[in-house]
Amino acid sequence: MDLETISARLAALEEAGLAAIRGAADPDALEAVQVAYLGRRGELKTLLGGIGALPAEHRPQVGAIGNRVRETLEAALQVRRAELDAAALEARLAHEAVDVTLPGRPFRRGSLHPLIETNREIARIFGQFGFVVYEGPEVETDVRNFQALNIPPDHPARDLWDTLYTDVPGYLLRTHTSPGQIHVMQQTAPPIRALLPGRCFRYEAVDASHGFEFFQVEGLMVDEGTTMADLRGLLDAFTHAMFGGGRPTRFRPGYYPFTEPSVAFDVQCVVCDGLGCASCKRTGWMTILGAGMVHPVVLRNGGLDPERYQGFAFGLGTDRIAILRYGIDDIRIFLENDLRFLEQF
């Protein structure tokens, strides 16, 4: 074999190899082409095996041509491999396509009860003013629920609370969270800023605005200089935080045996903005809580000297706040626990 012949064969091999590479339809075929042309027993090796028969001066030249052919084929292989890979990936992606408008996997959303969350929100707002949470029992003594709060047995003011009594002598279901005032004063020295959320009970016929079980939050602030002006300022701040700034409030006399002076606190009706509607009995106002300056007898029963200490207490109806906050028209829904209701919170 001479130089021309071998050169021509190499050229032919290159051409045939490139054609085979282009013609390989999948990675396996391409692999076979690679083995056939560039493998250990491939055509290129076989052809170049005959190089020994050439004269020594031609060998480097033929070697160079052979290398170029290998490089050309290898480069072509690489390109073709990339083409096939890309095509395969595309095919896989096309195969994997789905209807993306199908719904997502359903996760349960979960919910927190609006009454308890309203209590938490109330505590959060007053917490910003330094109020801390305490707890008192649901089953209370007559002494703490009434007598220590300046409501002796047979006092006409007892009519303000229709009480559920228990068969345990001296114990009743607390009618308000106010006995918490006594608990707090007995365990803490002033300055006191306390909140007592809790469940209360009254003998009440159930209707859209009354239940025999309901929730309240008691507030108590006692030190040497807390005044009615502080009470008003805090209640205004609370109202604005809960119902939006700028809503007018009204401070008027109320009556509780355990506060003196006593206060009823009204906010402009959140339903009609003061124009007068059924919700506010056409007055434009809604009473959201009762409050007042802690009665000296109560301070004394809490172990404090009323000549030195003074302060205020208030009792917020959680149900009432929640009704206004969420626009609910019937408090019975809170204890019905209908999922269609709960899922909205």
């Binding site: 707890e135 300055p191 205004d236």
Partner: peptide, 18 residues
């Protein structure tokens, strides 16, 4: 009666039992 925010001393820290 004018409203104002308290200027009296703050109570001690108390962990929230809830």
């Amino acid at each position: 009666i004018p409203g104002r925010l308290p200027e009296t001393p703050m109570p001690e820290y108390r962990p929230d039992p809830r």
